[in-house]
C-alpha cells in the first residue's frame, strides 16, 4: 500500500479492472489479443467521450442529463439536412450550433435562473427530444447519406490498425485534460465546483464559467454523436430515452469524480470507462445472457463503491450536506 499511497476510488476501480483483465486473460481464450483489446476500447470509446463531457460538468458541480438527447437530436438533424441535399460540412455546422445553443440554455437556466442542474438538464433532455421529434424529423431513425465518406471514417475507419473512435476518445480526453490543467478557465471550473461561493468571492466569474461548462459538454456530446452516427451509419433518436445517460454517469462517478464537485479529473473517467469495457467484453465473449450481464455489472459496480467506502469511510462530521 505504501507504494500505491492512499487507496482512492480511482485506484480501486483500476485495480478491479486489472484483476478482471488478468482473470479473463487466463480463463478466456482470445481475450488477451491485440485485436480484442482494440475492440474492447473501441466499443467503449463513445461511452468514454460522453464520460469526459460529463466529467467536466460534474467537476464543476453540475450534471448534464440532456447530454444524450442533445447529441442524438443534433446529429440526427445534421444527417437529415445532409440527406436533403445540404453539404455535409454545413449540415454539421448547423448541428454544432444547435448543441451550443442547448448548452447555452442549460447554463443560463442553471447559472442565472438558478434551477438545480439535475432538473434543468432533465427537463432540457425531454424538451430537446420532443422538439426534435416534433419539428426536425418525423422518424426516430435517421440514416446517414451514403456519400459522407469523411464522416464515416470517424466511426468506421482505422489508422495504423487502430480504429478511429479510439483516436477520437484519446483526442477528447487529452484536450479536456489540458483544458482542466493548464487553462485559466479550466482551473476556474474546478474552483467553481469545489466551492461556488468562495470562487465568487475571490472574483471568479462563476456564472459565465457555468455557461461555458455546459456548452463544452454539449459540444463534446456532439462529437460523440458524430462518432456514433458514423460507426452505425445512422442515428436513432430513441437513445435519448434509453438508460445510456445512466451508464455515462456511472462511468464518471465510478472512476472517483464526486457528484459534489471539485474532485477528480479526466483520468478518473477513463478508468471508469475501462472497467465497464473490460466487463462488457468479457461477458460477451462468455456469451452470458444480457440480463445476467446486467446483474453481474451491477454487483461489480456496487463492490467497487463499497470497497471505496470501507477504505475511505465517510464520517457524519465531514460529510457535506446535500451531497447525494
Amino acid at each position: 500500500m505504501g507504494l500505491l499511497g492512499q487507496p482512492t476510488q480511482e485506484k480501486i476501480v483500476l485495480a478491479l479492472a486489472l484483476v478482471l483483465c488478468l482473470g479473463f486473460a487466463l480463463l478466456l481464450p482470445g481475450f488477451w489479443t491485440a485485436s480484442n483489446l482494440l475492440n474492447l476500447v473501441r466499443s467503449v470509446s463513445i461511452l468514454g467521450i460522453l464520460g469526459v463531457a460529463m466529467a467536466l460538468v460534474v467537476i464543476g458541480r453540475g450534471i448534464d442529463l440532456s447530454l444524450v438527447a442533445t447529441m442524438a437530436v443534433a446529429v440526427a438533424w445534421s444527417l437529415q439536412l445532409a440527406e436533403s441535399g445540404m453539404p455535409m460540412a454545413q449540415a454539421l455546422a448547423f448541428g454544432l450550433g444547435f448543441c451550443l445553443l442547448i448548452g447555452l440554455l442549460n447554463g443560463f437556466l442553471i447559472a442565472y435562473v438558478e434551477i438545480p442542474a439535475i432538473f434543468a438538464t432533465l427537463a432540457m433532455g425531454t424538451a430537446v427530444y420532443g422538439f426534435g421529434r416534433y419539428f426536425l424529423f418525423s422518424l426516430d431513425i435517421v440514416y446517414m447519406p451514403p456519400d459522407a465518406h469523411a464522416l464515416t471514417w470517424v466511426g468506421q475507419g482505422t489508422l495504423f490498425g487502430v480504429p478511429a473512435p479510439i483516436y477520437m476518445f484519446a483526442l477528447v480526453s487529452a484536450l479536456a485534460f489540458l483544458f482542466l490543467r493548464y487553462t485559466r478557465q479550466g482551473r476556474y471550473l474546478r474552483s467553481v465546483g469545489d466551492n461556488l461561493l468562495a470562487a465568487r468571492i475571490t472574483g471568479v466569474p462563476t456564472r459565465p464559467i457555468i455557461l461555458m461548462q455546459y456548452m463544452i459538454s454539449s459540444v463534446i456530446g456532439f462529437l460523440a454523436g458524430c462518432v456514433t452516427a458514423a460507426s452505425v451509419a445512422s442515428m436513432n433518436v430513441r437513445i435519448s430515452n434509453s438508460t445510456l445517460i445512466y451508464d455515462v454517469i456511472l462511468v464518471v462517478v465510478l472512476g472517483g469524480i464526486g457528484l459534489s464537485g471539485g474532485k477528480g479529473g479526466i483520468r478518473n473517467a477513463i478508468v471508469g470507462t475501462l472497467l465497464i469495457g473490460v466487463l462488457l467484453n468479457g461477458m460477451t465473449i462468455m456469451d452470458i445472457q444480457y440480463t445476467v450481464q446486467n446483474v453481474i455489472k451491477g454487483i461489480i459496480l456496487l463492490t467497487a463503491i463499497v470497497i471505496d467506502t470501507l477504505l475511505n469511510p465517510r464520517d457524519e462530521q465531514t460529510a457535506q450536506q446535500g451531497d447525494i
Binding site: N36, N236, T284, Y290
Partner: peptide
C-alpha cells in the same frame, strides 16, 4: 444469443466481439 435492446450501438458491440471471437 444476445439481446441488444433494439439499439444499433449495442448490436454493433456485440457483433464485433462475437466476430472477433
Amino acid at each position: 444469443n444476445q439481446a441488444a435492446d433494439w439499439d444499433a450501438t449495442k448490436a454493433k458491440n456485440i457483433a464485433a466481439t462475437v466476430i472477433q471471437q
